[in-house]
């Protein structure tokens, strides 16, 4: 298992949140998207750190926005899904789908239906 082949759980969630935004998202937007989707509090710092790791791995792209007065002149970084990132997600989804296909017959899973 080489490093960086399969995204970890938080990475998956952040990638999906980026994908869900179609356009761009900053850490703040990802945070809100994750809370909305999961109903759980998540770590802001973990999201930022994950975003920068996704970029390192080539799964996300970023640009730094010019200062805007409302934020005290501080820059913001915006992220979006890269092509590679999209491929990883699609790949993951296909693998999961195959597993799901095999699993969906289980009585415990059917009950939830």
């Amino acid at each position: 298992m080489g490093r960086g082949d399969t995204p970890g759980a938080l990475e998956q969630m952040v990638l999906l949140a980026l994908a869900g935004r179609a356009g761009e998202a900053a850490g703040r937007e990802v945070y809100e998207a994750l809370i909305a989707a999961t109903g759980h509090e998540v770590s802001v710092a973990a999201i930022h750190i994950t975003l920068s790791r996704l970029e390192e791995k080539g799964w996300a792209l970023s640009r730094t926005e010019a200062p805007e007065p409302g934020r005290g002149g501080k820059p913001r970084r915006w992220y979006r899904l890269s092509e590679e990132g999209g491929r990883v997600l699609a790949d993951l989804r296909a693998r999961m789908a195959r597993l799901w296909e095999g699993a969906s017959g289980h009585p415990h899973l059917r009950g939830d239906g």
């Binding site: 703040r28 802001v44 970084r77």
Partner: peptide, 12 residues
Amino acid sequence: QRELILDDLNSL
């Protein structure tokens, strides 16, 4: 990342 995170935490 420090500034970015602190900023977000601050405004939240």
